[in-house]
Amino acid sequence: MTKRSFISALWFCAPFAVLIVLWAILIPYFDVNPRLFPHLTAVVQAGIEGIQDGTLVQHIGASLLRVAVGTLLALLVAIPLGVAMGVSPVVSTFLTPLFRFFSVLAGIAWIPIATLWFGYGFGAITFIIFNAVFFIVTYNTLLGVSTIPLHVRNAAASLGAGRWAMLTEVLLPGALPNIVTGIRTGMGFAWRGLIAAEMIATNVGLGYMLFVARDFYKTEVIVLGMIVIGVLWLLLDRLLLAPIERATIERWGMVQRA
């Protein structure tokens, strides 16, 4: 790690450190009822217990697995579909409004219908993730492909690129910055949708863990869950998605067009 990125990481953590210190001091000082908000030590304790008895790991594993499966399935369908739509100006113009609409809608609005179609459990929740990622990635792929300058496609054709080479050498790399942006936004929605869906439609996962703890006034488990949810997303976003996005867009000098 360079000195600079170390310092910027420190700055990123600083406000959280302040918050934790305030928490450690103020809750005991005002003698807050643990049924309303837990002590820092209780949350740490709950975290250690969760790791030791394996329940926390189990919930995290279930949530991450659903995100991974749902996202992967969505990408497998969305990227080819987006490319196919993007190469035809007529098709892309026609379908763009539709995909914009569903991009905004995607998320917890699908929960009721998902539980009717798939019942409670893995299927319904994976479907929520799938939707959150699918519509945005399809829309972004379509946008990315349709905004590749015509002369760049012409250049490839006059250098001898056939249909397959056009796809792999021009359309996919040309749309990649948009696709990555789409995946990043879509997974953001997916993660929020996941937690909501797990509160309703399952019996394992971080959302479920939070929701059940409420029934027993276990505020320390609720807060632990909230922290884990936030930290996992930050790690995923900052350590995996953001660097990929930056690498494609900055290295290639391609302005983000979404």
Binding site: H151, V152, A155, A156, A157, S158, L176, W252
Partner: peptide, 16 residues
């Protein structure tokens, strides 16, 4: 086709 090479005003290089 590759029998006719083209040089474009806007360069049209592959940025990736």
């Amino acid at each position: 086709g590759p029998d006719r090479g083209v040089v474009f005003q806007s360069f049209a290089l592959f940025p990736w």
